[in-house]
Amino acid sequence: MNKLASLLLKKYLPLVLLACISSLKAETLVVQVFDQTNKPIKDIVAFAIPKFAIDSLPSNTSQVVIDQKDKKFAPYMTVIQKGQKLTFENKDDITHHIYSVSGENRFEFKLKTGETKQTQALIGVEEIAMGCNVHDWMSGFTLVVDTPYFGKTDDKGNLSFNNLKPGNYEISVWHPQLDAEQHIQSQYFEITQGLNTLDFVLKKALLPIPTQQGQDEFDFLEEY
């Protein structure tokens, strides 16, 4: 019994604290994502879309930076709101040729060492597959969502959404290696007053993330 109490405490105390911190009027939703073996999934993207009429949703204007470091996209996965821009920073000592050939969100530029470039405002609500035309193994993904309520889960698989209005929401998780249509799994959830919690269980295990590394480890390769 004690064990159960301490387990519950461990699991829910942070959520209770979170709820206390958030403003009294606002409702909070804490989504915890698990795989089928009940293991929490960290760094997976979750987002919430209200399914009722709202006059205006807030817009996210923060700068989102994706580094090119050690010939990899870092982070591998990014999520932004429709209308946000992506900023790329080349921290390698070589040139990259960054591109997206996805739907409405196409961009392409060469990025010399130390350079920073920004895309146009991305308006297509979709998954963007990013690559480098010099280093084919480099791979990164960005999801553009039409909601200000999004984020990535922490080490315990938790993500909290604050300042939500009560009502029906579509709660989704996305991962490029999620074996589902558009790599998204969704479910409906009703937010009520106070603290809401949702245990979100993935229907299928995530496929392994491909290693962002070429076969040859030498630094001065050419395309022979």
């Binding site: 040859d216 030498f218 001065f220 390769l221 050419e222 022979y224």
Partner: peptide, 17 residues
């Protein structure tokens, strides 16, 4: 240009790493 044959000469100026 070099024909696409060698799996050794893949570095700068067709050198082998």
């Amino acid at each position: 240009f070099y024909p696409n044959i060698s799996l050794e000469n893949i570095a700068t100026a067709w050198s082998s790493p």
